[in-house]
Structures are given as structure tokens and as C-alpha cells.
């Protein structure tokens, strides 16, 4: 290849190293030199040419963010449909120039955009007067339907005679069951206090029953709870001796042992038959040891001895 352009000649003069080479390389060199000439008048001689370290950083595409929709909102819009329920504050959906926070020096309090304080506090934007009015009207309609349904006699039996007044109702049905429901901000619906059910019988008795096992069946719904109370589940029949809450002497190993012992005594010694009272005393003593522990019986024992 003979044709060497003027620019190439200049580049050869500067970078002597690339002078002897094949024709293809000459062409490439000529192209780069032309490109460089367009940008720079004089090129710098690099005896040790630097590596072309141009990191190709991917430019992050900026996503076009539309302007906040609070700017486009018409003045007479239906606000309850914009903010239908309780929600954390969002500046783009509330067309109000809000500020919250303690001002720094003489500046204005922080504005609504990027304001964490506004996001923390609970707001009542879903409880504006029109929204409340709308909900009340919806409730009225529902109640109207319910009344119409309840007035239809085909679904109801007749109200029993003689139970018209609360006094009469109390006299005929003296039992009252009081349950408590508790609400917490936690994923569990169980509350130990909700297990306490008070059964009131007239004005005479008040006693509290702790209903453990049934509360696991149902905790949230009281009527459901009462219905479940009357059921006996199949697994409840599998209750063994170890599952009993209280010790019952009748049918226990202790009763059997006592019987065996008495039989043995009768046979071997020929003594009198055991008295009925002694058996009852023994039974009470064993039962109280199992149910109340040892200490109550120790308190009782001296007194019994004294009486005897």
C-alpha cells in the first residue's frame, strides 16, 4: 500500500512505533487520526500510551414521574372516593398546603412532601362530614331492610305471653351469662381475661367459672361460644386419668387398694368390717391431698384428731 494521507503521515511522525505494519492497520490508524484531528489541533505524544480506560457506566434511565395528581384535582371532586378508608398520609393525593413539624430557625415548618411526621400521625381524612353522611345513609337503608325482614311474620314465632316486661323476663329466666371481649392491636385474638365467664343466677348467686378448654374452640363470638359449650366433641371422650383436672376417688386406684386391704384384713385377722365414716374420711383425705396439696390436710389433721 503506497497511499499515505497527510494526516496519517503526521500521526506516523508522532507515533513512530506504528510505522511498520500491514495495510489493514494503516487504514485503521488513518481513521482514528482523522477523528482525533477533528477534535484537537495538537495531539500529545504518549511514549507509553495509556490504556483506554473508559468505563462504560450504564446511565440510569430517569423514569418520567408524572406531577402529583393533587394538582389536577377538580375543586368539586367527590372526596370520599379519593380517600375511602384509613390510610397513611400521602402528599400527592391531598390537595392541601399542609405543614407539620417544629420550624428550624426562621424557616417555615416542614412541608407535606417527604414529611415523615405527617405519615406517623393518624389522620381523619376518611371521616369528612360528607363521608360520614354517606355512611349514615347507607346504614339507614340497611336498617330499613332489616326492619322490613323482621316485621315479616313468616320468619318469626309469636312472642311468648307473660314475657312482655323486663321484670317478667327476669323472673322466668333468672340466669345471666356475662362474657367480656377485648380488642388489642396484635395478631392474636386470645386474651386471658376473656376466658372469665360470670354466671349470674337471679340476685342470689354470683360465681365465676374459668372455662379453659372451651375457649380454645371459640373466642371471638359469644353466641357461638355458648353453643359450643353444650357440644361434646369426640376427642373429649378420650380423656384419660392423666388428663383429669381433679382427682375423683371413686373408681381410682386408691379405692381399689383400700378394698383389697380391707378384704385381706377380714380374711387374715377376722376383724370388724370397716365403718362407713372411716372410708369417707380416708376418701376425703386422699382427694384433698391430690387436689389441694399436702399443706391444707396438715392444717385439718389436728382438728380431726381433737374431735375424735
Amino acid at each position: 500500500m503506497v497511499i499515505i494521507r497527510a494526516s496519517l503521515g503526521r500521526s506516523l511522525f508522532k507515533n513512530c512505533k506504528s510505522a511498520v505494519s500491514s495495510s489493514v492497520q494503516f487504514r485503521q490508524a488513518s481513521q482514528t487520526a482523522e477523528q482525533e484531528d477533528e477534535t484537537e489541533e495538537f495531539r500529545v505524544l504518549q511514549l507509553i500510551p495509556k490504556k483506554n480506560v473508559q468505563t462504560n457506566r450504564r446511565k440510569q434511565r430517569q423514569m418520567p414521574v408524572p406531577p402529583p395528581r393533587s394538582e389536577k384535582m377538580p375543586v368539586d371532586q367527590h372526596w370520599p372516593s379519593v380517600w375511602p378508608g384509613p390510610r397513611t398520609f400521602h402528599p400527592a393525593s391531598v390537595p392541601l398546603p399542609l405543614h407539620q413539624g417544629y420550624p428550624h430557625k426562621k424557616n417555615a415548618p416542614p412541608g407535606k412532601v417527604g414529611n415523615a411526621e405527617l405519615m406517623k400521625i393518624p389522620n381523619f381524612l376518611h371521616l369528612t362530614p360528607p363521608a360520614i353522611k354517606q355512611q349514615c345513609e347507607a346504614l339507614k337503608i340497611i336498617n330499613g331492610v332489616r326492619e322490613r325482614l323482621s316485621n315479616r311474620t313468616e320468619f318469626c314465632t309469636e312472642w311468648p305471653k307473660g314475657l312482655e316486661t323486663p321484670e317478667q323476663q327476669e323472673a322466668h329466666f333468672p340466669i345471666e351469662v356475662i362474657t367480656n371481649t377485648y380488642c388489642h392491636s396484635s395478631p392474636s385474638i386470645r386474651d386471658p381475661l376473656a376466658r372469665i365467664v360470670t354466671l349470674k343466677v337471679g340476685y342470689l348467686f354470683d360465681f365465676i367459672t374459668h372455662l379453659d378448654i372451651y375457649m380454645y374452640k371459640c373466642c371471638c363470638c359469644n353466641t357461638c361460644f355458648l353453643l359450643n359449650l353444650q357440644k361434646i366433641e369426640p376427642w373429649e371422650k378420650e380423656k384419660g386419668l392423666a388428663d383429669m383436672e381433679l382427682f375423683i376417688w371413686e373408681g381410682s386406684a386408691s379405692e381399689e387398694n383400700l378394698g383389697n386391704f380391707l378384704q385381706y384384713r377380714e380374711k387374715s385377722c377376722g376383724g370388724d368390717k370397716a365403718k362407713e365414716e372411716d372410708t369417707i374420711k380416708f376418701k376425703d383425705a386422699v382427694t384433698s391431698i391430690f387436689n389441694d396439696g399436702l399443706y391444707p390436710i396438715l392444717d385439718i389433721l389436728p382438728r380431726n384428731i381433737l374431735i375424735n
Binding site: I121, P122, H184, S186
Partner: peptide
């Protein structure tokens, strides 16, 4: 300045009287 100039970052009822699961929460 919490409760004066700024508010809490966790809102729940566990630390109220009779509240449950405070540690778990």
C-alpha cells in the same frame, strides 16, 4: 423531643395497661 416535636415510629397498644405481647411486638 418524642411526643413534643416528633412522634413515635411504632404505634400499638401493647404497652398500655393490660396490653398483651409487648415483647413479641
Amino acid at each position: 423531643w418524642i411526643a413534643h416535636r416528633k412522634s413515635w415510629n411504632s404505634f400499638n397498644t401493647t404497652n398500655l395497661l393490660g396490653g398483651l405481647r409487648s415483647a413479641e411486638t
